[in-house]
Simulated assay, not measured.
Amino acid sequence: MESREPVETVCHNDLAPWNTIFRAGLPVAFIDWDTAAPGPRAWDLGFIAWRWVPFWRDAKCRAHGLPIGVAEKARRFRLLLDAYDLEPEIGVVHAGIERMRQLQEHMWKLVADGSGWEVELARRGVLDEAALEIEWVEEHALTLVGS
Rank of each mutant, 00 (worst) to 15 (best):
P6M: 03
P6R: 12
V7G: 06
P17C: 05
I21E: 10
A24F: 09
P27W: 08
A29M: 06
A29S: 11
F30I: 07
D32Y: 04
D32W: 05
D34E: 15
A36G: 07
A37G: 07
R41A: 03
R41E: 08
L45F: 02
L45V: 02
G46K: 10
R51T: 04
R51Y: 09
W52G: 02
W56F: 12
D58K: 11
A59I: 10
A63I: 04
A63M: 10
H64M: 13
L66I: 00
G69A: 08
G69V: 06
G69T: 09
A71P: 03
R78K: 15
L80M: 06
L80H: 02
Y84E: 11
G91F: 09
V92H: 01
A95N: 04
G96A: 08
E98I: 05
R99C: 05
R101W: 14
R101M: 13
E105M: 10
E105S: 14
M107E: 12
L110N: 09
A122M: 07
R124N: 15
R124Y: 07
L127Y: 09
D128G: 11
E129P: 04
A130C: 06
A131Q: 12
L132I: 01
E133I: 00
I134T: 12
I134L: 08
E135A: 15
V137D: 01
V137Y: 00
V137R: 01
E138H: 07
V145P: 08
G146T: 14
S147I: 08
